[in-house]
């Protein structure tokens, strides 16, 4: 074993798992458009329209060590984003549990917390605050957030008057400045112009270099190989393969191309 390899192994054993998923399972209704109507409330349970259900994820177990960058691979609708949402605690599993040690910075639907009628400044304080930052912490980082998003002139403009590019920029800027040890990324990098995309990539590199753990969902092979060290391959709601990212991407390509 090379010296470098030994050092890495020592470092890996010293680290503790920060995300532990144990036998995760979650069920959805297949026919999502179907809404139960008022009559169903009073109908007998046998007569009630009951759409069939399916397991979006089942028997999924894995653990992620601190400092790892894990990419989730799979076709559309195989449970990738659902897995990310379970880790982010914005969904609750029907079976098993997922334990996350330390805070999470979720880059999932990043503009979700922003309020159209409030100014950019108020929105920054609101969103960062909802993710657990205190007012002095936000004040310290405020200039950094604004300069990263590059929208200095629009600080007091209502959020709804920003262009869609600016909205995503400020949102990414806020969430990526949260001092949380775990970063969850759900293909948000597909938006914004090339220049900003490059900036986002550099920011993620920076965060990873400072020892953060990342959980990354993407269809882009290049992005997965660039950031991740390990891959999880999901198919039909099952965890098919958990291994080095190159191996996982190769297996995915062999299966579907």
């Amino acid at each position: 074993m090379t010296q470098q390899g030994m050092l890495a192994t020592a470092a890996a054993t010293a680290r503790k798992p920060v995300i532990v998923a144990n036998d995760l399972g979650i069920q959805f209704k297949r026919n999502r458009r179907h809404r139960r109507n008022f009559k169903d409330l009073f109908a007998e349970s046998s007569r009630r329209a009951r759409p069939d259900e399916f397991w979006a994820l089942r028997n999924v177990s894995f653990s992620v060590q601190s400092g790892e960058a894990v990419g989730v691979v799979g076709r559309n609708g195989q449970g990738k984003s659902t897995l990310l949402k379970l880790v982010a605690d914005v969904m609750i599993p029907d079976e098993g549990r997922v334990a996350v040690t330390g805070g999470v910075a979720p880059l999932i639907e990043i503009t979700g917390g922003f309020v159209d009628d409030l100014s950019v400044r108020e929105n920054v304080y609101l969103t960062a605050g909802l993710h657990g930052m205190s007012v002095p912490e936000i004040e310290n980082r405020f200039d950094e957030i604004i300069s990263f998003a590059d929208i200095g002139d629009f600080l007091d403009t209502p959020y709804k008057h920003l262009s869609s590019g600016m909205r995503v920029r400020i949102a990414f800027s806020v969430i990526s400045r949260l001092e949380e040890p775990i970063l969850l990324v759900d293909e948000v990098l597909a938006v914004g112009d090339r220049q900003f995309k490059e900036k986002c990539y550099n920011r993620i590199d920076e965060l990873l270099a400072s020892g953060r753990t990342m959980f990354f969902v993407s269809h882009s092979e290049a992005d997965l190989l660039r950031f991740c060290t390990r891959g999880l391959y999901l198919d039909k709601g099952k965890l098919i393969l958990d291994g080095p990212i190159q191996e996982v991407v190769d297996r995915y390509n062999a299966d579907y191309k």
Binding site: A88, D89, V90, P106, E109, I110, G112, G113, L130, H131
Partner: peptide, 8 residues
């Protein structure tokens, strides 16, 4: 939107 993206 907010409930889907933020754990509160």
């Amino acid at each position: 939107k907010l409930i889907r993206s933020t754990s509160i």
